[in-house]
Design a protein around this nucleic acid. Structure first.
Lengths: 222, 222
DNA sequence: AAACAAACGTTGCAAATGCAACATGAGGAA
DNA sequence: TTCCTCATGTTGCATTTGCAACGTTTGTTT
């Protein structure tokens, strides 16, 4: 268990909490460590959504199946990441999706009530965890909103303008590097890689921007 | 101010809080009511993101401008709705977007610190507000995730299968009504209305479903 | 240097979609 | 009833995109 404390310290849910207080906090939260084999379900669709999990080791997939049986991987969560936190916090009764171990997984499960119900001993770190939880949910919110903003544009060129403008603003300059390769950017924007290259090429011809690999420079119209 | 209390009672941020406690709570939160004229900015891009707002009367738009000056309306918030809550909760320094009054607006502004910092008088409703905040952020999270799940499918048919499967699951039956008109559904899925009609028609021919207006029945393949 | 692999750019072509124009049908008002 | 309006369905056509195949560049290995 000891070595996992290192992991937990990096987990955003425990940000700002002194390492020496972690054990106290974990017992206060009744956190339990569980191990799962490859392809084993951690949460099944229909389970009560009263728990959330932290991946300590390994990788899990959040998966969903539609009416006709088509299976989709919604997200992949690796070491330090959370799963089930949105359903627990939203106070949803039943999970509409499953969480499955992609490989051997060590995970920490926490009952959500233990987080929001103030504990009898009124530990001071408890309120810190709640604030972290708020920050995590809100940040994910913003990330999701941005992504929708980008991918809901009609054409690839518009998606690119939206994404690149956002990056320029984020990095405070019209010249910047993006954190994606072409293939990754294409996946993020839900478009074909070669079609994306084609559009970038066109936009450069039109004088909207210059680029090389992952380095971009947006240019004002003259 | 009195009549606005009715509104506030319906605001999810104050769910579960007794109406008689609202005034105490509001002063505890240092909530201030402000009025805005049509086209007046409530928040400007670059403002400190330390406040959130509740629309009491009227309607506001959350707007963004990209590098080349293209303006987008991200969301529209009307009576009872919140704005700025994600940025405040995410502890973002500066707002990357603006909030503008579409018409005459009455709004309640709350400093986010007042919500998460436990107040000296330790009012019991305070923790209720925090729990509400968590629920609101998490629910919005799920709504956004679902939308991304739907619109990130490649074809219109796949988007429809994703959306309709979700509705079927939500309503617990393979026969259900959707809360959208065709035009609204097309906007939600980011596709053309007539193209959407065309796909629905095809899917019915293929025996995947039956529909009439907003009533749908998903059918198993025989 | 030579050989290879990986990432990216380019392009022809077919499929999907947007767009526009029109048809149909249901419901409301006079 | 008749007329009108609005939501939805239908369809031809142009554009956009996905897909596949191939060319180019860069960096690494031997």
């Amino acid at each position: 268990m000891e070595k996992n404390f290192q992991q937990l310290h990096k987990c955003p849910l425990f940000a700002g909490i002194d390492e020496k207080d972690l054990f106290t906090l974990l017992s206060c939260l009744s956190a339990t460590e569980k191990h799962y084999h490859k392809n084993e379900y951690i949460f099944m669709p229909g389970d009560r959504a009263d728990k959330m999990g932290i991946v300590l080791e390994g990788k899990v997939h959040v998966v969903q199946e539609d009416f006709w049986g088509n299976r989709t991987i919604l997200t992949s969560v690796s070491s330090g990441g959370l799963f089930g936190e949105a359903f627990a916090s939203a106070e949803i009764a039943q999970l509409p999706l499953g969480v499955i171990a992609v490989e051997e997984v060590k995970s920490l499960l926490i009952n959500y009530r233990k987080i929001i119900d103030t504990c009898p001993s009124v530990c001071s770190f408890h309120s810190e965890v709640i604030r972290n939880m708020l920050r995590i949910l809100a940040q994910k919110n913003l990330i999701l909103t941005q992504k929708i903003d980008h991918i809901s544009k009609k054409t690839i060129a518009e998606k690119l303008q939206s994404y690149l403008s956002f990056q320029a603003h984020l990095q405070g300059s019209s010249e910047f590097d993006i954190p994606f390769s072409r293939q990754e950017l294409a996946e993020y924007l839900n478009v074909d890689r070669s079609a994306l290259s084609r559009e970038l090429s066109r936009m450069q011809q039109q004088g909207l921007l210059n680029y090389h690999k992952s380095h971009f420079q947006l240019t004002d119209q003259v």
